[in-house]
């Protein structure tokens, strides 16, 4: 691992200022993804600003019946919260389907959103990867792309975003509160946090340099059942091949794009009275097969149809 300096501010504005003022600086939250990537020399920060002692680990009901989640709430505490389990069960289901108990005890709401792809070529410095080394090429296009994107990919990158939690947040229509380098705060939709790869897959989010996610805000839960389904190669502690979050008539897919994928065409089909199978296919009609990931198209269609039926019937997870 390359050398770096370290500080642990206790004030949010000071943390934001520290990262903005130091080239090569990064925020350090749970560290379960960042430190792993630093060991592999893929992440190379010169300065770490540890945000673990910032007062961002609280949760509170909002005046409109939603829930405001501090960005440093751990995945474990978020999944176990009684309000989340009863009102936003899709979020609990998504979180407990990701990582291991040990990882969820360190992983945070903010950090989970900002984790990097698990594309094998991103992890292999001996191979070209536009995300790791811009301009070097994409090895996955003609390589091992079984777990690559079927939506929104580009010639430069077909990697996927690996978060389960973010898929549930996208289906719930959650938003984020952030603090920017000048100390100002702003709000953006979770759906607007991640970018599609385009020509610049190394730029993954719409956050400015030094901008810190301070909270995730859930709107009041919409009517209807909530379901999270995830397909993977082993029963536990494995990244998804594909996942589906259903919240009433709101639908999002995971592990199929560079960002959590809101299935707007499925939602539109549902709104015009389509059945579950037809609605599922409405979104999948636009999916792309890169050679080895075509199975995801049928997989997501079936999972979506089943999850929609399950949500309507009010069957449990």
């Amino acid at each position: 691992m390359r050398p770096f300096t370290y500080e642990r501010p206790t004030d949010v504005a000071a943390a934001v200022k520290a990262v903005a003022a130091t080239p090569g600086a990064k925020f350090l939250a749970g560290g379960t993804n960042l430190l792993d990537l630093m060991k592999l020399d893929i992440e190379q920060p010169t300065h770490l600003v540890d945000v673990n002692r910032l007062p961002l680990a609280g949760m509170e009901d909002t005046s409109d019946g939603g829930l405001r989640i501090g960005s440093m709430v751990t995945n474990s505490h978020l999944a176990a919260d009684a309000r989340v389990r009863s009102r936003y069960s899709v979020l609990t289901q998504a979180i407990v389907s990701g990582g291991s108990g040990q990882l969820r005890n360190k992983a945070t709401a903010g950090g989970n959103l900002l984790q990097r792809t698990r594309c094998a070529y991103f992890y292999d410095p001996s191979k070209p990867c536009n995300k790791r080394l811009p301009g070097s090429g994409c090895s996955a296009l003609d390589g091992l792309n079984r777990n690559s994107a079927i939506f929104g990919a580009s010639e430069a990158c077909i990697a996927t975003h690996p978060s389960d939690m973010a898929v549930a947040l996208t289906a719930l229509g959650a938003s984020l509160e952030t603090m920017t380098a000048d100390g100002a705060t702003r709000t953006l939709a979770v759906a607007d946090l991640h970018r599609l790869p385009g020509d610049t897959p190394h730029i993954e989010t719409t956050l400015a340099a030094g901008e810190l996610i301070t909270a995730v805000v859930l709107p009041p839960a919409p009517a209807g059942g909530q379901v999270y389904r995830k397909a993977r190669d082993r029963a536990s502690y494995a990244g998804g091949l594909a996942s589906v979050a259903v919240v009433g008539s709101q639908v999002a897919f995971g592990a199929v794009a560079h960002k959590p994928w809101r299935a707007e065409k499925t939602e539109a089909a549902l709104a015009s009275g389509a059945g579950a199978v037809e609605a599922a296919h409405a979104e999948l009609a636009g999916a792309q097969d890169n050679g080895k990931n075509g199975f995801k198209i049928a997989l997501v269609a079936r999972m979506t149809a089943d999850a929609l039926a399950q949500a309507r019937e009010g069957r449990g997870a």
Partner: peptide
């Protein structure tokens, strides 16, 4: 609380 000690910096 159980964690992976390999994925945490001692200074944290």
């Amino acid at each position: 609380v159980r964690i992976n000690s390999c994925l945490s910096l001692a200074v944290m």
